[in-house]
Design a binder for these strands. Sequence first.
DNA 1: TGTGAAATGAGATTCATTCTCAATAAGGAT
DNA 2: ATCCTTATTGAGAATGAATCTCATTTCACA
Lengths: 148, 148
Amino acid sequence: MQEHENIFEAFLAEKGLKFTLPRKLILDTVFGLHEHFDAEQLYDLIHRVSKEVSRATVYRTLPLLVEAGLIQRSVRSESRDTFEHIWGHPRHAHWVCKVCGSVHETDMQDAVRILQAKARAQNFSLTEINLTLTGICWKCQNHATESQ
Amino acid sequence: MQEHENIFEAFLAEKGLKFTLPRKLILDTVFGLHEHFDAEQLYDLIHRVSKEVSRATVYRTLPLLVEAGLIQRSVRSESRDTFEHIWGHPRHAHWVCKVCGSVHETDMQDAVRILQAKARAQNFSLTEINLTLTGICWKCQNHATESQ
DNA sequence: TGTGAAATGAGATTCATTCTCAATAAGGAT
DNA sequence: ATCCTTATTGAGAATGAATCTCATTTCACA
C-alpha cells in the first residue's frame, strides 16, 4: 500500500469513517495526476477506469482529502474549484497569466519559512498556504509588442 | 472629484468606454467600504441609496474595477467571489481560520518586495498578489483545548 | 449472519454568475 | 441642437458547479 493510502486510511479511522473502494479509487487517481485538477476532470478520469464512482462521491471526497492534508485548493480556473496534491511536494507559488491563462510554478521555500515564523509568532496553526501572482507572462508581453 | 474616480474614468476612456452614473455609484460605494465585499452585498448597499443600478451592472462593473487596478479578488467566502479595494492600501496577507471563519490581515511589504524581484527576474508583469494562509486561529485552538 | 451506522448513486435542487435582447443613453460630428 | 453610431443598461432567462435528498447498499464488528 502506498503511503498516501496509509495517511488517508488513518485520517478516516480517526474520524470513524471508512476507507471504501470509491474513496480509494479517487485517492489513487488524484495521486496518479501531476497537474492541477478539478472535480469534473477527476470524475472523467475515474470513469475511464471504472463506472463505479458517482459525481456526488467525488465532490464529497475532495474536502476529506483537503482535511487530511493530502491535497489543497489551488488557483481557481474558469469557474471551477481546482485542487492539487501537496503531500510530498514542496510549497510553491502560482504565476497566472491573465492573457493566455497559463499557470506556472516556482519554489517558495524561503517565503514559507518566513510565513511559518509569522504564524508561530501569532499562535496561528498554519495548514495551508496559497500564494497566487497574477499578471502577464513574458510570452504574452512579446506578442503585444509585436502587434503594435 | 476623488482620485479613484479619475483613475477609473481615465481607464474607461482609454478603452473607449463611458463613465456612466451606474458605474460611478458602484465605484463610490466600493470606496466607501472598508471591508471585503461580494457582488450581492454591494448590490444591497447601492440599493439603499438608489434603485438605479441592476444586479447585472454590478456584476459587469466589478471586472472592470479589477482590470483598472482599483480592486482585487480576495479570499473566497462561502461560495461567493469576494473583492477588496487595493488602491492606496498596502498589500497584505489574509489569515483565514477554518474553524470560526474569521479573516485577519497582516502586513506583507517584505514578501511583496521579494516577489516583485522574482517577477522582474522572469520578466513577468505582476499586477495582483494574493496570499492566503489557512489554519486555526489562537482563539479556536484555546476553545479546543478547554473542551478536552 | 445480524445489526446499526456510514456511504453511495441518481437525480433534483440551489444559487452565484453570465447571457440575451430590446430599450436607452452618451458623445462626437454636422 | 439634432443625427448617428456605439456603448450601456435592466429584467429576467439560462447556465453550470456544487450541494442536497433519500432510498438502497455496504461496511465493521459482534
